[in-house]
Computed example of a mutant assay.
Amino acid sequence: MSEIDPRALRNAFGTFMTGVTVVTAQDADGHPIGFTANSFTSVSLDPPLVLVCLANSSSNYTAFEQARGFAVNVLAEDQKDVSNSFARPVEDRFAAVEWRKGPEGSPVFEGVSAWFDCSMHNRVEAGDHLILIGRVEAFETSPAPGLGYARGAYVTAAAEAEALSQGAKLIVSALIEHEGKVLLMGNDQGKLTLPETCVGKEGASAALARLIAETGVAAEPGFIYSVFEDEAREHQHISFLCQSAGGTPAKGVFTPLTQSTLMDIADAAVCTMLERFASESRMGNFGVYYGNQTRGQVRAVGTGGSSS
């Protein structure tokens, strides 16, 4: 088993908004088992540890308590049916998804935002839950945006954008990241900007998809990273944090966020946002900004949660 790259793992942890995951393992007879969880928590990068919580009342309690490891599958926003199947007493939950054994042996799903295949590091009894701490032995990520869940309903990036765009003069930008670099474009004044576009009758999600397609890179909308009112230009600005699978951009260049690069950013509010992104990328701990172009607050994207 090859060693885990801490930087790549940190980026994987930080990029995916707290959302719906399915935790899987094999029982004593080698049969796949799994349950839907609200989220999982990154515990440590050295060694690479994550944890999930399993209710003592779960029918899978004994099997997971005795398992040699588990996998965490971060569902994509088009996998609501998978979430529902693993949250209910379905006879064959795994019929709802394409899966295979991961490098460490636990089931990992196709089409997810990410999966983390773990060996069992520790088990801790905590009240009415069992805490499972796993050591990440292998992981894989994709540009697919994750499926969120809040206040009893599923939340997707597209739904968030449409809700925010109602009745607003809206500009959407894409903060597209690949291997620690951000896609930046030049403007007529020789300054740098993020890819951005005005939203018309097509709606925010369609405008964002068009914007990403015009860059020529393989990327999909991630979570909303910043929302602010630009009072000077009288519009609302929404920026999405997106992961790119790479490729040569048709427009712009993937650029490291050095101090000299930041000094060349045309918009002061976007410069401040990119400074925050550079700092949060180093820590692997992201937040969402709400406010105007000069002041606001950053709400942490939490990674806590439990399952039943």
Rank of each mutant, 00 (worst) to 15 (best):
P249H: 07
A245Y: 13
G216P: 02
Y154I: 03
S307L: 13
S119F: 03
A206C: 06
A55S: 09
A206L: 12
Y289F: 15
Q259G: 05
N285R: 12
A25P: 02
A159I: 07
K101A: 15
M185Y: 10
N122P: 00
F13D: 05
W115F: 10
P249T: 04
F116C: 04
T62F: 15
E229A: 10
A174Q: 08
R210L: 11
Y289V: 08
L241W: 11
F86I: 01
Q236D: 09
M263Y: 04
A8Q: 12
S165G: 11
F109H: 00
F86D: 02
G246W: 07
T258W: 12
Q259H: 10
D230W: 05
S58Q: 07
G34S: 08
G14V: 05
V182G: 06
P143K: 06
S226I: 08
A71K: 00
F139Q: 00
V288R: 10
T272K: 09
A8H: 03
L132P: 00
A76V: 08
E229L: 11
H235L: 12
A55V: 01
P249I: 07
I131T: 09
P256K: 04
K101L: 15
H31Y: 11
E214Y: 09
S85D: 09
T258S: 15
I238A: 14
T272E: 13
S142H: 06
T255L: 14
V22I: 03
N122W: 06
T294V: 14
C53F: 15
E234A: 11
G305C: 06
G222T: 06
S59K: 12
R135I: 10
G105W: 08
F86Q: 02
T156I: 06
V112H: 03
E3I: 07
